[in-house]
């Protein structure tokens, strides 16, 4: 494997966004790119990352290799990379370590780290192709704000999506709160758009602790997409350049 990223920033942010949700995971490398799928310890949420080969310049991977990595350790190594550094990830065929090289853009500084790999026996789940009943795209910063505000009211949020908009409702001991985003197009700045497409109304409840955790990915993308169908996990997607993505799935809270 040899994969070179123009800016370490992307990889730093991706790892930062998932490291509190999952601790040990395999980065599955093959000729289509670097993928990762992992559940959190309590098996409530799942993270699915894809960094396509096109994200790297260049990308080369001759054989399928899983790189089992402790994300806490990876975070320590990535701290040494500045956001604008060129990052190269390298690995041998049957590796004990993954090699990370950071090169300063304008300087003659080259940092090189070897990170020990671990054997991780990870369950791989089949995520069914789903035609979601409702899809809502919104500014990622707005979603983060809504989740953190409502977490102060309750540990759960009910998300209701209709043609009129998407509503987040929390009911807690101190009272209730709700936020509605209406569909709108900002002609000056499409990053501000709220776009809703719906085949049938949905209403589902989720843990805000997990949703606020997903929002650590906010810096990766201006917009976030929520995909919902009744009685299936919510998908929260941060789309990245070159068809890469960071997706989180969250199992709903259901009636007792």
């Amino acid at each position: 494997l040899e994969a070179r990223l123009e800016a370490a920033d992307l990889f730093k942010k991706v790892v930062e966004a998932i490291k509190d949700l999952v601790q040990h995971c395999n980065f599955d490398c093959n000729d289509s790119g670097i993928a990762l799928q992992a559940m959190d310890n309590s098996h409530v949420a799942l993270v699915s990352m894809m960094l396509t080969a096109d994200t790297f310049t260049p990308f080369r991977c001759d054989r399928n290799i899983p790189l089992g990595i402790d994300l806490t350790s990876l975070t320590k190594v990535l701290r040494a990379a500045q956001s604008s550094d060129i990052l190269t990830i390298k690995s041998e065929d049957a590796p004990d370590v993954v090699n990370l090289v950071f090169e300063g853009k304008d300087q003659d500084r080259i940092s090189e780290y070897d990170l020990k790999l671990m054997d991780i026996d990870q369950e791989h789940l089949g995520i069914p192709d789903t035609e979601y009943a409702a899809t809502a795209s919104m500014p990622a910063a707005d979603f983060k704000r809504i989740c953190s505000d409502l977490l102060l009211i309750s540990e759960a949020v009910s998300i209701e999506c209709t043609k009129e908009g998407i509503t987040f409702k929390a009911e807690g001991d101190i009272g209730n709160g709700s936020v509605t985003l209406r569909q709108h197009s900002d002609l000056e700045n499409s990053d501000k758009n709220v776009d809703i497409s719906l085949t049938e109304p949905v209403a589902l409840s989720f843990s805000l602790k997990y949703l606020t955790g997903f929002c650590k990915a906010t810096g990766l993308s201006n917009q976030v997409r929520l995909c919902l169908s009744n009685d299936v996990p919510l998908m929260v997607e941060y789309a990245l350049a070159n068809n890469s993505y960071l997706r989180f799935y969250l199992a709903p809270k259901i009636g007792d």
Binding site: H43, P128, A251, I254, G255
Partner: peptide
């Protein structure tokens, strides 16, 4: 009253 469901009850092991 609601309870948290698990992700594995929706996504099968492959």
């Amino acid at each position: 009253k609601t309870k948290q469901s698990g992700i594995t009850s929706f996504f099968g092991k492959s």
